[in-house]
């Protein structure tokens, strides 16, 4: 390991990781609006997306503050390119069918809820306050996505098959949530955030319980894609997402919306 990161630099990276996760997943979930299998699900998915967009405003707003260059949450969301994004690969993969979307949501919500639970005790009061506000929203996301995963897994033959396929496809993206690097080491040292690896046992217990209820089989492989939260190598999908998300800000720089 090279020289330890400066605390503020590591803090900024941590905040981008939190905010980019909610930004990109919120964007993905919002793609469903008007296209969900049934009206009640359409409305529920929009609520989840709305929560995630709101959470993004908190995390990226604080990131701008810590960075100290006068950037707003919007500047950070709309004016960075792929290599500056710090979200998990899991949240940038395309929606696929409703089963993929809900499985991805569940796998993320489970991590998110555990992470926020730890952040409630963050040494940084601003982080603890955001965790306090968002943990309640995420607890509901988890409840809803877990129930839907169980309902579809233990549903019809077709729904079970599709949910197993979704789990098999998404499983290699789970490991990245628990990889620790020098950013995390600095956050642990400062008491701001937990070591990601320390969340794994609780996570495994949670998802094993739900996926067993869903009659689904967790793949044996522990192989994990990585590169999202470090920014070293995103999927090809993120660039396409950004071309839509950032288009107006890029095409008409400096305009007020």
């Amino acid at each position: 390991m090279s020289t330890p990161l400066k605390r503020d630099e590591a803090f900024l990276q941590f905040l981008l990781r939190m905010g980019d996760n909610t930004l990109i997943l919120g964007h993905r979930v919002s793609e469903w609006c008007g296209h969900a299998p049934v009206l009640e699900e359409d409305i529920a998915l929009a609520n989840t997306a709305l929560d995630l967009i709101g959470q993004t405003q908190f995390w990226l707003g604080l990131a701008g503050e810590v960075q100290g260059e006068g950037k707003s949450a919007d500047d950070i969301a709309f004016l960075r390119d792929v290599w500056d994004f710090r979200n998990l690969l899991l949240v940038e993969v395309p929606n696929g069918d409703f089963g993929h979307t809900l499985m991805r949501q569940f796998l993320f919500d489970a991590w998110h809820s555990i992470q926020l639970g730890r952040l409630l005790k963050s040494s940084d009061a601003r982080v603890a306050a955001i965790a306090e506000k968002t943990a309640k929203e995420v607890a509901y996301h988890l409840e809803r996505s877990a129930d839907t995963v169980v309902g579809l897994g233990d549903g019809s033959e077709e729904s079970r098959r599709r949910m197993q396929e979704a789990l098999d496809y998404l499983w290699p993206y789970v490991g990245e949530m628990f990889q620790s690097d020098d950013v995390d080491a600095a956050m642990v040292a400062a008491g701001i955030a937990p070591d990601p690896a320390s969340l794994r046992d609780e996570y495994d217990a949670l998802i094993s319980r739900v996926l067993a209820g869903a009659t689904l089989t967790i793949p044996d492989s522990r192989f994990g894609h990585k590169g999202g939260r470090t920014g070293k190598m995103h999927t090809e999908h993120l660039g396409h997402l950004l071309t839509q998300m950032q288009w107006l800000q890029r095409a008409y720089p400096g305009a007020n919306w």
């Binding site: 299998p37 049934v38 839907t148 579809l152 549903g155 019809s156 729904s159 599709r162």
Partner: peptide, 10 residues
């Protein structure tokens, strides 16, 4: 359809 039917089956 498979979602509506799946959740109903559950």
């Amino acid at each position: 359809k498979w979602v509506r039917d799946g959740l109903m089956a559950h």
